[in-house]
Design a protein around this nucleic acid. Structure first.
Lengths: 309, 309
DNA sequence: ACACACTGTTTACGGAATAAACAGTCTTAG
DNA sequence: CTAAGACTGTTTATTCCGTAAACAGTGTGT
């Protein structure tokens, strides 16, 4: 038998780490935990977590419901394993790309992508930090992105919580829309429009002046991505915080590292590199300006071709 | 009868706005939607959303399960009303205090407080922006806090999404811990410690070097509040953003507003402009990389001059 | 060869949401 | 004033859920 890791270790977690004892005696097993999880994930992908019943999973594999209990202690364990399967580990690309900010953004995007592919993961109740290999891998990837900063480990964890929180929140909202789309069988724009229409009848300028103004400004019809905005602001704030604590202008709780950025500010090569960054920022700003202008013109052209609405 | 607002208006929402038609004929009603919701909330507060069954709610009021269906269309509607009841409206104090940042922080704190008092609210699946009076009130309060800034309405909504998202995330995590505390009947520190112990056996320095380092630095035993940290960073980023766009020195980086506009994506000039942006982004990334490298080298040089510390 | 650990199956139980039919109650149109 | 019928809370029944318990086969180690 494989060694029992900890007596108090929840069996579901033991399974996730692959350290559950496999029996030697008795008839050959016809199924495996992996196949069960796979079938359950397929069902959840197609019809949501609510459609995942022991009976449905068993049926998909051609067995009776109770047979699953020879492999999985309870439905709760199965769901933990489904989560682990669907979450996956961060890809090599996002684990190595660019600086800490790019890497965290890549992490966010990949995590969000997983949520959109497997929206049912968001329906699973959270209890504590999940102690599974894949979630550890995500955490490790985030921490290693932040290793180049001089944040404390506590601060790095907090930043990671910010990133995963944003991904979770974005996934929750976006998956909510996607679900309504599927259930009602209409597209996203139609939902936005009908939501907007409902708001217009319910939200009076009297009771909710600012909200009403936002509605009338068409803010609820805007197609832009508010979550990237939120993440960008958050990471910008982190960047500020790093800069502020780095050069000693701000006190840091229980920090023992004292790197002085001012110390190297007069280093020639560093100054040059910094200037290059400033220049690149300006180039990017100008490019953005041109992009917006081109977009405006393109829209105008389109609008002139299709005059109505 | 009260006027029927919209034919397509979901009945649950109609109830929430108090515009559902109350019948005049027939026997006197012995219950009311309010009493039902109240009973359901009591049960959820005490034993979680899972304990809220139609039978349980009815029993608490001394009626049979089916009687509830004379007041509520389905359990889903009841849950919507419970959410509305538990969420409440923002208090006068938080709606009027200080500048935009203080007000958003107060909003966050009050919202989080509600989540901690009624953790089951976090178990309710989200579908779209909830169109209920109280959630409108929260949104309006946030927007009115941001009215003093010169952000666009779309941006204000995005900021509000950041604030409520942080509250939701913090509530989810904290409520998760609280639930485990209640279920296992131990206090928070004990959970932290046992979680930490479990991590120490499962997380090897080999597979998860950074995570292992964080554990060994005691980051998982830290009692500080990572969510306030996250919110502070986010609002700091917003503040930067306001400063950067407000004084006109820099163009408003609203590329996130206009990206992925399928309608104009095939316009030639726009495509070129977009490519220019991508290129500029890459140049900036490279510049950042060089800057970091230069900083590292400069630090090393200094360190070698002053050997220890 | 045989004990028995282990397999997948059958049967059974309690609880869930809610559809349908029912008898009693109150309003209102005639 | 009366009767239609809208509306009440109740009863009964259906379907689906997770899973406990008992069961007859199957393969291994002694």
């Amino acid at each position: 038998m494989t060694d029992a890791v900890e007596p108090e270790l929840p069996r579901g977690i033991a399974l996730a780490w692959g350290v559950a004892a496999n029996p030697q005696r008795g008839p050959k097993r016809e199924m495996s935990v992996e196949r069960i999880v796979e079938a359950a994930v397929d069902i959840a992908d197609a019809e949501g977590l609510g459609a995942v019943s022991m009976a449905a999973v068993a049926a998909r594999l051609g067995f009776t419901p109770m047979s699953l209990y020879r492999y999985v202690n309870a439905k709760e364990d199965l769901i933990l394993l489904m989560q682990e399967e669907a979450t996956g580990a961060p890809s090599e690309a996002t684990r190595t790309a660019g600086g800490w900010r790019e890497r965290l953004e890549a992490l966010y995007r990949e995590q969000l992508q997983h949520y959109l592919t497997h929206p049912w993961v968001l329906d699973i109740p959270i209890s504590g930090v999940p102690a599974t290999p894949n979630s550890a891998a995500w955490m490790d990837a985030g921490l290693s992105a932040l290793a180049e900063t001089d944040l404390t480990y506590t601060e790095r964890l907090a930043v990671m919580l910010l990133v995963t929180g944003t991904a979770h929140w974005a996934g929750t909202i976006l998956a909510g829309y996607a679900r309504v789309e599927r259930e009602r069988g209409v597209d996203g724009q139609a939902i936005s429009r009908s939501e907007d229409a409902m708001f217009r009848t319910l939200i009076t300028a009297d009771a909710y002046p600012e909200l009403r103004a936002a509605i009338e400004a068409g803010a609820f019809l805007d197609e832009s991505d508010p979550f990237s905005f939120a993440l960008a602001r958050g990471l910008e704030g982190v960047s500020d915080y790093i800069a502020a604590t780095g050069d000693g202008r701000r006190e840091r709780p229980q920090s023992w590292v004292e790197r002085d950025d001012a110390d190297i500010a007069d280093d020639k090569k560093f100054r040059e590199a910094r200037k290059a960054v400033r220049d690149a920022e300006k180039v990017l700003r100008d490019a953005h300006k041109l992009e917006r202008q081109a977009a405006r013109e393109a829209r105008d052209r389109r609008a002139r071709q299709r005059p109505e609405m």
